[in-house]
Design a protein around this nucleic acid. Sequence first.
RNA 1: GGCCCGUUCGUCUAUCGGUUAGGACACCAGGUUUUCAACCUGGGAAGAGGGGUUCGACUCCCCUACGGGCUGCCA
Length: 463
Amino acid sequence: MVSERLIPPTGYLHIGGGRTALFNWLYARGRGGKFLLRIEDTDRERSTPEATAAILRGLTWLGLVWDGEVVSQFERRDRHAEVAREMLARGTAYKCFSTKEEIEAYRAAREAEGASYAVFQSPWRDADPATHPDAPFAIRMKAPRTGETIIEDQVQGRVVIKNETLDDMIVLRSDGTPVYMLAVVVDDHDMGVTHVIRGDDHLNNAARQQMVYDAMGWTVPVWAHIPLIHGPDGKKLSKRHGATGVEEYQAMGYPAAGMRNYLTRLGWAHGDAEIFTSAEAMQMFDLSGIGRAPARLDFKKLENTCGHHIAMADDAALLHELLAFLAAAGRESLTDVQQERMKRALPFLKKSVKTFPELMEKSAFLLASRPIVPEPKAAEALDTVSRGILKTLTPRLQNASWTKEALEPILNQTAEDYGIGFGKLAAPLRAAIAGRTVTPSVYDMMLTIGREETVARLSDAVA
RNA sequence: GGCCCGUUCGUCUAUCGGUUAGGACACCAGGUUUUCAACCUGGGAAGAGGGGUUCGACUCCCCUACGGGCUGCCA
């Protein structure tokens, strides 16, 4: 079983969080495990229903379906407090009456003494309960002060932390609310999480969390701390790099399968495998293939990967995803006629396109409706001579069977009649059919829009 | 400041002591072609620096430099 924790502070699924979810998903699904989802919403100011909804939308778009109900960490706060009290009863935690001021004074004093760092050592750690004042208290874990805590990490290796560098972490605040570090451990234990795959910003925290497992006598999960994703400049990914939210990528027109493939390869490798389906990824994915250095986002490679996936996609599924993209991007949807044409065009269009916006761009000829207004450059291709050629061609198309095999001889013959190369004929045809100079193949366009529409557009152009 | 993690072509990476250091993206050149793409062929491009260990280091150890993380009654 595998866990995944996601924090919804800014109301969207960060691309790094998306990749972490993806790794968890691949690992769990590839081994018959469960992919569980928990929203770490104990920070009430940053957690809203909208923020949570955005995260679920992002995951859903990526195709990462989770098992069971989404667990709210905040709603489990009573259970967290219960565990804190149990630690108290077991003697692995104690009541600490030190105030914030006292703690600060302690640290300041140690610093004045020239200490390079100061772990707070509470005077209440071994105090006789009889001396406890009637005052608010926090519950602190009684952490070992000597020895080492060893994290056997599947990605980072064996990480040794000296216990003397860790203070007695507070597990329950003086207002009775649990602290995140306790909540994670309790939730993971209660949910039966066996593998914790998360960002390496939690690597140091793992030592303190492991102490909680030990204090409660619980089985420590398998740890795997993966490096974070950085921006193209190597710096931590932030807003100034542009897209950081998963949903932005949908709006930019990247197909989900391509995103998954790219994100899987970002920081993970399996020999020379580059382009693969999620099913294949599940077979190959392993914690040992994860790199230890942070990886940079490379939009060119993302595009290339997406191009492969669009080309591999099933036409019906692709059309469906295209419509979803249009909705996500706030663009106008396709009419029935446009959808019909799109279905005919997809088999050839998908081969040369990397994103949905590019697909739409190349679909301009099929999206357009009569009369086609040529762009200036296209209009130049419709000079008097060219229009004469089209005038000759048009009637020849009237009764032709609408297949490439049937059309080819007709166009070739027309070009020959005028003593011109095929290119000279294709230019005005492009202008008349699409109103542009850059289009898909003239045959593909004609077959897509059909005979009636083709003849009509040609007639319009020479009228 | 302290502690922890990291560093192979521009980018993502392979290599798990012995290789002409491989692949992919990107880039450059050529080819194909009805335009743009796509596609095909070829090319340039890397072990942060310095010490060790070893017959032999990209691989193991140490130091330095540079990145990143943690160090909270935040998550």
